[in-house]
Design a protein around this nucleic acid. Sequence first.
DNA 1: CCGCAAACATGATTTTTGTCATGTTTAATC
DNA 2: GATTAAACATGACAAAAATCATGTTTGCGG
Lengths: 236, 236
Amino acid sequence: MQSQHDYSTCQSCAQRFNSVFCKAREEYVKAINDQKICNTFKKGQLLFNEGAYPFGVYCINEGKIKLSHQGDDGKEQIIRLLKAGDVLGYRALLSGDRYGASAVALEDTKVCFIPKEIFITVLKNDTGLAFEMMKLLSDELHKAEVKLTHLAQKPIRERLAETLLFIKETYGFEEDGITLNVRLSREEIANLVGTATESTIRLLSDFKKDGMVELDGKKIKILQHKLLLQTANLQD
Amino acid sequence: MQSQHDYSTCQSCAQRFNSVFCKAREEYVKAINDQKICNTFKKGQLLFNEGAYPFGVYCINEGKIKLSHQGDDGKEQIIRLLKAGDVLGYRALLSGDRYGASAVALEDTKVCFIPKEIFITVLKNDTGLAFEMMKLLSDELHKAEVKLTHLAQKPIRERLAETLLFIKETYGFEEDGITLNVRLSREEIANLVGTATESTIRLLSDFKKDGMVELDGKKIKILQHKLLLQTANLQD
DNA sequence: CCGCAAACATGATTTTTGTCATGTTTAATC
DNA sequence: GATTAAACATGACAAAAATCATGTTTGCGG
């Protein structure tokens, strides 16, 4: 099938060695390249919806994506933040399940869609890729279980501080070395922390008063060393 | 190496087709059998400790095990419950990481230890096992992410009801078809729900008043249909 | 540039949940 | 079977967090 947009080839992709495919054999990368379908999503656009059946995986070439659950009462819970080089959609595919979460672009994003058949075929034949996949799943599982513990045991103030540091780990800083390199609404931050929007707004103001962050609309500057103290519950 | 206790062979193990090894090829099951080290753990005994390095995986022949994190303040968070046929220790092994959680026997338990080398070798050569492993990891990841959402969004009452149903899903009922087939302390249930022990005790009493459970020490009888309503937030 | 909706902000209040205190029951050990 | 520590239970209170109410600011489309 013909690519809708051609981000050159997988072989020469800037994310080639930056993804789960880093150890994949060249011949299989080529095979994936022949089948991939590239596409762009505008900020706010849906890549796939919770409950739908997966027909392949997505590889992010450029941009940012959030993966979120819909709680029973309709409230969003953001479970992962993804960036260039990340792959998404594999969890449902490997479980033989529907998507457990929805994927939405946080900014204009370029992704390549890799059809299920070729992905599974390569996975069957390339041990390196299979092990990378298992490592990726294991790492995600570990992160989820740590987050679970924190959600159960830490107060919101600490969780917010941790979340800001997590955002920094994921997306890094802008050139100034202090501004988080992503624009999230207060509500999205709340849905990442697992709290009410108002609580997040209030605590961000507190953090500002305490000199741990600077706020300029959706631009958030963080002072890492001060936030680190906060997460360790050592603030006083 | 000689087994310390011989629970017959992996080939004839009662859990042979009940575990992640269900699709593994016979020759590899035999290879694992030659290397396995069987052992028993008394109730309360530690199989491995958070932070230690993994040297293999454990396959449960008989018994029950809890996997738990230590929160920063030392509070236990139970992240998984395991039973006969389940495998544990693979997460850290596949991540190339230390154990992220400790494993403790909930009752007298027989396990077989499968050394890292043979496990990895078989995983490399048996695609069926590798895919089962990926499915297992994907399923665990999904469960963790759903639990995360509930932890963030549901009140404790609902989470306790869900937890009781989860225990039932995992360990089932005793012969009477109503008593949960495991003995957990109130504190352990609290550490599974993610709440204070007193809250759990209080809510269990409420549940009893409302005719959703019957309590007899650590024996808990549950009325599933009533608890199901509770989880859906339809109690009133 | 204006109008408007969404996002942000903040105070007041209520609800939920955790903590502390204290007593009772249970179960393990000698 | 007495001793004793741990587990269970419950009330009173404090703390944390959500909700509700009400403005203010921001950014977008005309």
